[in-house]
Design a binder for these strands. Sequence first.
DNA 1: CCGATGTCACAAAACCTTCATAAAACTGCA
DNA 2: TGCAGTTTTATGAAGGTTTTGTGACATCGG
Lengths: 238, 238
Amino acid sequence: MPEGFSHPAKPKVLIVEDEAALATMLRYNLEKQGFAVEEAGDGQEALLCISEREPDIVLLDWMLPTLSGIEVCRQIRRSSATRDLPVIMVTARNDEQDAVRGLNTGADDYITKPFNMEALLARMRALLRRASGGSGKGRREFHDIVMDLSSHRVYRGTRPVHLGPTEYRLLDFLMQHPRRVFAREELLDAVWGVDIHVEPRTVDVHIRRLRKALNVGNETDLVRTVRAAGYALDTETL
Amino acid sequence: MPEGFSHPAKPKVLIVEDEAALATMLRYNLEKQGFAVEEAGDGQEALLCISEREPDIVLLDWMLPTLSGIEVCRQIRRSSATRDLPVIMVTARNDEQDAVRGLNTGADDYITKPFNMEALLARMRALLRRASGGSGKGRREFHDIVMDLSSHRVYRGTRPVHLGPTEYRLLDFLMQHPRRVFAREELLDAVWGVDIHVEPRTVDVHIRRLRKALNVGNETDLVRTVRAAGYALDTETL
DNA sequence: CCGATGTCACAAAACCTTCATAAAACTGCA
DNA sequence: TGCAGTTTTATGAAGGTTTTGTGACATCGG
């Protein structure tokens, strides 16, 4: 598994639920939907599981033995490692109060029992989307190349640079590891995806287009070709 | 503590909400933020409270017993004493339709459940600032696009722009995050709602309608398409 | 009836991949 | 060192594919 990507593989969901029947039902449905499922029966177990298995999202029942859902949620928010972990609170309808307090505690969303899978799935997917997209914030810089991730823009100095989707991802990847040389195969894995079949030479073409877009006039070429090895972002193209 | 504006003392907020739990949560948070809180559980009570306690701002739930939120809002606007009273509509996500109609009725802004306090506070402060500063802003601006939230109107420069409800919400959302690119799915989540099933391509159609309404003649297109990524509001459509 | 909306099918772009060929870099050898 | 052969990379163009723009249409609620 290469760099920090979104959720290319199965998203891992942790179900924290003491009612075995409900947990089983959830597991069944979520697995059918392509999630990897972990389970915890109480609060303690939940926190343990979170730090060990690092789920992508948590379904947290409000009524829990040993440690209440609200307390679990607080703990999750307390640690910087899990501060952005999406949490959906699951509560009984008649005590919607808890749902609200749950939200107040830091849950990202809540749903009341009984719920239908569609609604739950929709919320889960929305949260996962937000989580993976939200971290794609900020900017990258190298020499005088600037990428603004949130607006999806690239500048060489002050000049705006237009890149196609693939060149954008390629540059994005290279800028995460400046100066490091990557073989064509590595680039294919990282930028195109592991199970995509594309000729390694295709990388050349995209490198060319990247260069053409990046270097105008007599600007120095920041893409270095390393014969028999691959490409890198570097100031000394030598 | 809303930075001391022309509200010498604590700004007084009236919460009109029949769901006790939500009301309690709101009260707790708002008091923590330095507001004086009044509560009303239904429409009748709300109108009474408004004339007696003269709140500075009203949080109005859409679903109410005895008198719907929309009707309460109408009444508020009818009386010259309360015509300029800031009203924020609170609605459930899945009937965001109603929110828009609420705005038509005269609400100054709206927010959908579940919301986070930050967002709500930001809107409240903005409205209070406007109300106290007199001719302040319940408006959003970008380049030469102006949205007046209270009158629910949009202008391109000085030209009035007519938008359907969906286009309005779409623009509203985009203008809250200028320059940032949103995937179709993100827009669906934010503008349509999380558990609404709509084809992602539908976003295209509304973007088109938005463009058509926004750009007349040879005005620059402020809606940027980012291939394989989504759409954004931007000055450089490049 | 009308305006607003979600979908489709088709057109138009923008983009990818591949291939053939040119250019460059390296190698071994005289 | 210079040369011819070999390997590797650069480049331009072509063809096919994916993504987006657009107009039309059926629906729905007022």
